[in-house]
Structures are given as structure tokens and as C-alpha cells.
């Protein structure tokens, strides 16, 4: 009986610690995903400028080169482009993807697709530059959020677990 009681306490503590850790990880992931998007956009900009590859091929290429969760977005966008235009396909892929970035970030990432495949290469490059500068702002915000919240949620998880165990004791 005693053993069961203590194992349940240990389970509660492990659960709350895990929840705290998972929530704090979301902030870390958000920053790294935004950074991945930034480098991917830079790659796309270069490819549009110098290689004139079709967008679908560029996106497939990026999906292959990146192994994080953003690869899935590019793969999905490339699939969507078979039936839709580039802007709609990109927006759909970004909005449906299960990634850690917030709604505001998604809006900025979506703005990247606004002129995709619709104007000449110079216009597209300008549009990508604009969304890159917006993305930089979001990365700054994500950094501040991360600094503020990662430690908080980690310790909050552990301490809440200890509090529940003490109350139940």
C-alpha cells in the first residue's frame, strides 16, 4: 500500500515536470523554426535569382535538405502547387502545418508567398526581402519570449508537482 502511494506521488511529479518541460520546449522550437524559415527563404531567394528553377523543384529541394519540422511545410506546399497556384498552396501548407510558431509568425511566413510565382524574379526577390525583415522582427520577439518563459515553465512544472504531492501527503 505504501509503495503504491509513493509510486503515484512519483508519477504526479514526473508528469508535471514533463508538462513544464514540454511547454518550455515550445518556445525553443519556435525560435529555431523561425531561423530555419529565414535560411530557407534566403536559399529560395538565391535560387530565384541565379538558377531559375521551377518553384516546385526548389521547394522539394528544401524539403530534402532540412530535417526539421519545416521540411514538412515545404513538402506540403510543393504538393499543393500541383493543383493550386503558389500563393494558395503555400498559405494552405503553412496554416495546416503542426509547428510551434504562433499565429503572428504564420502571418509573416504567409506574406512570403504573396507574390510567389506571380511577378518577375526581381519583384519576387523584393517581396522575399520584405518578409525576411519581418521575420527578423519575429525572431527578436521569439528570443525575448524564450528568455522570459523557458526557465519559468521548467521550474513551474517541478514546483507545482511538489506542491500537489505535499497537499496529498
Amino acid at each position: 500500500m505504501e509503495f503504491v502511494k509513493f509510486s503515484i506521488y512519483a508519477l504526479i511529479l514526473a508528469c508535471t515536470t514533463g508538462i513544464g518541460f514540454l511547454v518550455s520546449q515550445k518556445y525553443t522550437k519556435r525560435e529555431s523554426e523561425l531561423k530555419d524559415f529565414k535560411s530557407a527563404f534566403n536559399l529560395i531567394k538565391t535560387k530565384i535569382r541565379y538558377t531559375y528553377e521551377p518553384l516546385q523543384e526548389i521547394f522539394d529541394d528544401i524539403a530534402k535538405n532540412y530535417n526539421s519540422s519545416i521540411a514538412y511545410v515545404f513538402k506540403q506546399a510543393s504538393n499543393n502547387m500541383q493543383t493550386q497556384n503558389a500563393t494558395d498552396g503555400w498559405n494552405k501548407a503553412v496554416n495546416e502545418a503542426v509547428i510551434s510558431i504562433t499565429k503572428e509568425d504564420k502571418r509573416v511566413v504567409c506574406s512570403f508567398g504573396k507574390l510567389l510565382g506571380q511577378t518577375d524574379s526581381q519583384g519576387q526577390i523584393n517581396e522575399i526581402d520584405l518578409s525576411l525583415s519581418l521575420l527578423d522582427e519575429q525572431i527578436e520577439k521569439a528570443k525575448i519570449d524564450k528568455q522570459k518563459n523557458v526557465k519559468l515553465y521548467k521550474s513551474l512544472g517541478v514546483i507545482t508537482g511538489i506542491a500537489i504531492v505535499i497537499v496529498l501527503f
Binding site: 522570459k148 518563459n149 519559468l152 513551474l156 514546483i159 507545482t160 506542491a163 505535499i166 497537499v167 501527503f169
Partner: peptide, 26 residues
């Protein structure tokens, strides 16, 4: 005496939580 220890434990935990949350600006 268990009751006293329990209350002391809750007090310490709440104090720490208060510190953490107010440091984070909440």
C-alpha cells in the same frame, strides 16, 4: 506534527512560486 510540516511545506512552495512568477513579470 505532520500537519505542521505540511503547512510549512506549502508555505515554502508558495513563496518560491511567488518569487518565480514575479521575476517573470507576472
Amino acid at each position: 506534527i505532520d500537519l505542521l510540516f505540511k503547512i510549512a511545506g506549502i508555505g515554502i512552495i508558495v513563496a518560491v512560486l511567488h518569487q518565480i512568477l514575479s521575476k517573470a513579470g507576472r
